[in-house]
Design a protein around this nucleic acid. Structure first.
Lengths: 283, 283
DNA sequence: CACTATAGATGACTAAAACTCATCTGTTAA
DNA sequence: TTAACAGATGAGTTTTAGTCATCTATAGTG
């Protein structure tokens, strides 16, 4: 002797719209179905929910009480469903402007070809959208990040603009763009380690610093000079032959891309997306 | 591509109980049905709601959001349903202690024989239960009550204990119990009108006053004396031959029994009950 | 004042879910 | 190593929800 949820849904709609006909339209049913539902409900509950007048139904006192509760209850559920459905169809990401501009956004086209049903929205900047579901891809210190959250450890190397002739590391002064993060807590680019690994002393290197890797890379490209930066950001430019390398060896850094609390991003599309990102960074 | 409410119900239960098996028990289903519902839900929403481990399911972040909303939403609806179901099976009344004790409660047995499926609960006293659904049967001034709310207009007359010999209105002093309401706004019992209607001057009547009609009636019965009170309260005692009349004529009063906002008490059982009460008072 | 149009009620029938059963998987605990 | 257990999966069945045809009552309309 349980009431059916469909019947309650029909009742809620009829109560809200004030008509079985309109409720039927709203629910894509026939008015007959709504009528059946409501009389079923009334006989199961043993109360009248509507006063029937010709071409007009009016909620009874009891009906009003039930209508209020069902409207509120279903609204709560519907809102959550809408939220969850969104989570199922769009992936939202925030990340640094360098990563977004140089890798993520350019590569997104490939993602949508591979997964046409998943929309991706990218936001950059400090807009601390603590909305649920938004995935923050951060650039940080690998030694202070949970290992499971890390997507990739960063390698650093020197790159030069297309067509440059290889730099002469021991003669005249060489200009090298590098990055000095605004956020002092971030590990600095491992330039000393790179010099050591490549057997250089760096005595004739003139450093010029930007606060975002992106700017240094762009500057190097337009000024036909060199930049010391992470290998992931330059991957696409190398492939496109807009940057070149000079046989130097990359060095590991303490920097990494990571997603805080990564295992909690567990919806299907989020998972797909994060796997794809990992491939993008490692492949 | 709509999600089904049954599936949501199954999910809500599984989320709350932390197990498909327990949810199945709660909903009187097989675990298979719950499993089907949830995988259906997951594929329609395109999200994972549970992490499946062996013999253990754990809500995903998304699942937690949906679980919270569905639990709250369904609880709201269920509470209202319980309330409405109650309204369908039990009728609650408050009224004066005199009316309850002398007419309503004694007659209730007949009501439950006629309508075995309707339970009636009677409360008396000032406990201003403004709960929904409680029917207040009040005793008041007919001239200041909406006509549609009135159940019956009261007639007043003099009654005596069983076996008394008829009083002699003109000789020795006659003791007459009557009522003086605590609430001064109530019309007084129409004693003057009754005396006039019965051609008496009342010169030798000694009045004794109680603040409830019930007390005067009881006193008259135990002391073998007379009481001036409403005819409805004495109806049963007359039938049972515990009280008698002496050929006097009853007079109308401004007092009535009424239910504030009576037309709003429109559930089936309430209606049945109020009709029965009306019959009780008029018949 | 009849006539038509309209909202809903009713009952028989059908389509579509919801549910179960039998079987299978992976893991835990004995 | 095996029994036991929670859940997954697929096919088949039952129940429910929905439709169609028909009917009622009445509010507008000419």
């Amino acid at each position: 002797m349980q009431v059916s949820l469909q019947a309650l849904k029909a009742f809620e709609s009829a109560a809200r719209r004030g008509s079985f006909k309109l409720a039927a339209e709203e629910l894509s049913l026939t008015p007959t179905a709504v009528s059946h539902h409501i009389s079923n409900l009334e006989s199961r509950l043993n109360v009248n929910l509507f006063h029937r007048q010709t071409r007009q139904i009016i909620l009874t006192e009891t009906g009003r009480i039930l209508a209020k509760a069902t409207t509120e209850g279903f609204r709560k559920i519907d809102n959550a469903l809408a939220e969850v459905k969104t989570a199922g169809s769009v992936v939202r990401v925030t990340t640094t402007s360098s990563f977004a501009a140089m890798l993520l956004i350019p590569a997104l086209q490939e993602f949508s070809q591979a997964y046409p049903n998943i929309a991706v929205e990218v936001a950059t900047g400090e807009a601390v959208d603590n909305q649920p579901y938004i995935i923050p891809i951060r650039y940080g210190d690998a030694t202070s990040v949970a290992p499971g959250d890390i997507i990739s450890h960063e390698l650093f190397d020197v790159f030069g603009a297309r067509g440059m002739k290889p730099p002469c590391w021991s003669a005249e002064p060489v200009t090298l763009f590098t990055t000095e993060w605004k956020n002092a807590a971030l590990p600095a680019p491992p330039l000393a380690a790179w010099l050591a690994a490549n057997g250089l002393d760096g005595a004739n290197i003139v450093l010029k610093k930007f606060d975002q890797e992106l700017f240094g890379i762009q500057q190097a490209m337009t000024e036909n000079s060199l930049v010391f930066c992470s290998t992931t950001l330059t991957k696409r430019l190398l492939n496109a032959n807009l940057l070149q390398q000079f046989g130097t060896s990359p060095v590991k850094s303490d920097l990494c891309y990571y997603v805080p609390d990564k295992p909690s991003f567990d919806s299907r599309n989020t998972h797909t997306f994060l796997n794809w990102i990992a491939g993008l960074l490692h492949g």
